[in-house]
């Protein structure tokens, strides 16, 4: 028995899609979809980097540069963003899988890697939806309008708290739902254990990430 990897179906209909996502099943069609995902990720990151410079003022000097230099800057940002868009998902998915592995050992690293690829698709959708906000609001992608950080910014200046809350978006709930149904089928653990593990591990990872950003 095998599990056909379909990213969009998995994140939109997780209850049905992950019924075949079990420890004894094998994944079909993952590699090429993963490569396509990396390519899309690369483009999204590249466009985000360009929009950040062009509209959000992440490079304050940009508007004072000559036309030639502006083009050079955008090109550099596009290439750098594109490369980052390939490296970051590889690291993030692998780290996510490693993080979950001790808590869901029976699922195995490979399946957890696949699971986090679904998670990354949600993240990528969030990144795509944020693009028009970068251009319209002139704010860099670090300041997500889907996050709690914007409201927190009104009451605190603590960079750690802000970094943490800016990483908690409305898409996090979606990610948790996808992960829950996937692990419910794959791990056969109690619902409470699964929910607590997912929420706990995600928040712990985000806290560590916020700590690094605040340094």
């Amino acid at each position: 028995m095998s599990h056909g990897v379909r990213f969009f179906y998995g994140i939109t209909k997780p209850t049905r899609h992950f019924q075949t996502f079990k420890k004894e099943t094998r994944e079909r069609g993952f590699i090429w979809r993963f490569i396509v995902l990396l390519a899309v990720s690369s483009i999204v990151w590249a466009v985000t980097a360009v929009l950040n410079v062009q509209f959000a003022g992440t490079l304050p000097e940009y508007s004072y540069l000559s036309e030639g230099n502006q083009t050079n800057v955008l090109l550099t940002e596009f290439i750098t963003g594109g490369i980052t868009g390939i490296i970051i998902p590889l690291i993030a998915i692998a780290v996510g899988a490693i993080l979950y592995w001790p808590f869901f050992q029976e699922v195995g690293f490979k399946k957890l890697f696949v699971l986090h690829t679904y998670t990354y698709v949600v993240f990528l959708i969030a990144a795509c939806l944020q693009l028009p906000f970068i251009a319209a609001l002139h704010v860099p992608n670090d300041y997500s309008p889907f996050s709690l950080g914007v409201l927190a910014d009104l009451i605190t200046n603590q960079s750690f708290i802000l970094s943490f809350l800016y990483s908690i978006t409305i898409f996090l709930g979606w990610i948790w739902i996808v992960q829950f149904f996937a692990l419910k089928n794959a791990a056969k653990r109690s619902n409470v254990y699964t929910v607590l593990s997912i929420v706990g591990l995600t928040l712990a990872a985000l806290l560590v990430y916020a700590g690094f950003q605040a340094l």
Binding site: G57, P60, E61, S63, Y64, F133, A136, L137, H138, V139, Y143, P145, F146, S147, V150, L151, D153, L154, I170
Partner: peptide
């Protein structure tokens, strides 16, 4: 709720960015 949340955040972000200096 989500639309209201995003709208409020967008408004606040727009306000925030107006007070920031561009080039030091």
């Amino acid at each position: 709720f989500i639309i209201a949340f995003i709208s409020l955040n967008s408004y606040l972000l727009n306000e925030k960015i107006e007070t920031e200096e561009e080039l030091e």
